[in-house]
Write a protein that binds this DNA or RNA. Structure first.
Lengths: 346, 346
DNA sequence: CTGAAAGCGCTAACAA
DNA sequence: TTGTTAGCGCTTTCAG
């Protein structure tokens, strides 16, 4: 933090305003907050003083007094990618309209960092927390402060806790995507994922497995580590098979990105010899050649629901029973799955 | 804001800690902040009490007392796109390491919203502001609070003010890009931009004009409004010409995106019949067919410099002379400009 | 309707 | 070394 004490630039305070307007401190406060009775005339005088001094209320002092900071914490892994950006935008909007500040913090999906950030937020008295949790987190949700802070998670639930969450029907839509590929006649459908411990990924894996099983097909599912070009290596392994897969299903944005890049590098076209569907859209996805078929998540809706729900919890007089919302996604058929190309955009 | 008063869940305070440890309030405070003398033994007792109560310092109260909020405001148009995401990530990192919170707010490049957000931030006593300003802003930088709050702008300067800013050599690199196209033998090089009042855009336009003029070529520069598919319409106009352009230079991320999409829709390949260079990279740009040649901005570096500079200003005992940093970009030659394809990534 | 006074939880003198 | 005290700037009773 700042080493040197900031020069004591005293900004005008309510006391100054009151003095200038020739009224008491309390009256000035009431006039500005609109709470309690103040005569037209006095109010006008006070507002004139405010104008003249360029007074702005010190929200810190106010928060201390009223015991509400008017801030909420938004804890997310990162802001790359259209999905999270969409969520953040929607969340920010809802809270701003409700008069709250959003303190955004990044965890990099690291449990340790997440714990730090949560600690940080509660120390700053946030009125609520919106979190897209790191997989495996959970232990650090048990501080006394956290117990008194409304929380809703989105994108994935907080493990082993029954907090509110806004989720997606991951399993269902993963299955739908794979079924679609099967419908195109594919028998060898590979599935690429990352982050095995991630709840959404697990759900999507299940969807894939179920679809394959139902169709009596052999699953080819691999979870890789993107750090050491695991996606590319896995793809090469599959391609080296005597009978390589004819379709690929990627479980999230990052693997989709890697796969598309890798396919492009190797000159492998879609949908033949390799049909493709990704869970999550990527930027330009609808404009690639061929356009990418994808399960697209309603990012804005997810963010909005989560924010709305958190507001409910904050305003609730007592603890509400926790709720889990499951939202729908959309399987958007473009060209990469083998469907006739139609440039349906978002 | 919250309508109902939050149930008065009194969290443990320093008083509780002090009492439990059997010491005075001041001693407890000193022990926890590490300032001033406290005996080993008492300190241990105090820490035990902290542990036992699950005490967390109320940063709001602390801020009020020490007159530093430990928060900085980050004001940006939006978080789409790799460029801003990269900046934000770097900024966040620097401030977190220095012990500051980042309050991120979005302006949508709207002057009005920007003014609101700035007001919001100063009311919350932020120790400094980092801003990628909306074009045309400037008036609302003149409140007494703003005058006492260190500011550094990045990506573009604050108009008509001499605040610190971290900028890019926009003109230079725009010119380099166009020169490169000229080097490939192009005579009719179109240039597509948006947001005519945006400083960076203006600089880049100048770069384009200079390059064309030097080469004795006729500029074909159009600034469009993306809202009503202006980019597509403009492209169609150019294509309808008796001698249509053979190369296209886009002035930013959004126009690049639009142009790439439009070109794809119309089945126009790069680099022939249309060579292409974009100012700003886009996601997947290096993996398109052909990979996109682009001027890429060092987003991380820009963010880091800006954050670093703001920290300097905050820690400075008095007003520092304002400084303007001009950073270099990189013209990355991939395939779309006509160069032999090399898959140099970032 | 208005003013005075009591704190929110913390830090920073100042005495002890 | 430690405890006591006086506020930071604001809201909120509670009498006037």
């Amino acid at each position: 933090m700042a080493s040197r004490p900031k020069p004591t630039n005293s900004m005008p305070t309510l006391v100054h305003v009151a003095k200038l307007a020739g009224v008491g401190l309390g009256t000035a406060s009431r006039a500005l907050s609109g709470q309690g009775y103040v005569s037209e005339e006095t109010a006008a005088r006070i507002h004139r003083a405010v104008e003249q001094l360029g007074y702005q209320r010190n929200e810190l002092a106010r928060s201390l007094k009223v015991k509400r900071s008017g801030a909420i914490g938004l804890v997310i892994p990162d802001v790359g990618g259209p999905f999270m950006a969409g969520c953040v935008r929607a969340i920010q909007k809802v809270f701003r309209q409700a008069g709250y500040t959003c303190i955004i913090t990044f965890t990099d999906s690291d449990e340790k960092i997440e714990a730090q950030e949560l600690d940080y937020l509660t120390r700053h008295q946030v009125d609520g927390i919106l979190i897209s949790p790191a997989p495996g987190s959970g232990a650090h949700f048990r501080t006394p402060q956290m117990a008194h802070t409304p929380i809703v998670s989105f994108d994935l639930p907080i493990e082993k806790q029954d907090y509110d969450s806004i989720l997606l029907k991951n399993r269902h839509y993963a299955r739908a995507a794979v079924d679609h590929l099967i419908g195109h006649g594919h028998k060898r459908i590979a599935c690429l994922g990352m982050n095995r411990h991630h709840y959404s990924i697990q759900q999507r894996m299940e969807g894939y497995r179920t679809a394959m099983k139902q169709a009596g097909l052999q699953p080819m599912l691999e979870i890789v580590d993107l750090a050491d070009s695991g996606a590319r290596r896995q793809l090469d392994k599959w391609l080296a098979l005597k009978s390589p897969p004819t379709a690929l299903f990627c479980l999230n944005e990052l693997t989709t990105l890697e796969a598309v890049e890798a396919l492009a590098e190797r000159g492998i076209r879609m949908p033949s010899p390799m049909a493709f569907i990704g869970f999550d859209d990527i930027q330009l996805g609808p404009y690639l050649d061929p356009p990418l078929t994808a399960v697209v998540q309603p990012a804005g809706q997810i963010g909005e629901c989560a924010a709305q729900r958190l507001l409910e919890l904050i305003d609730a007089p007592e603890k509400l029973p926790s709720k889990r919302l499951m939202l729908d996604a959309a399987l958007i058929l473009r060209g990469s799955c083998g469907c006739p190309i139609s440039r349906v955009t978002y």
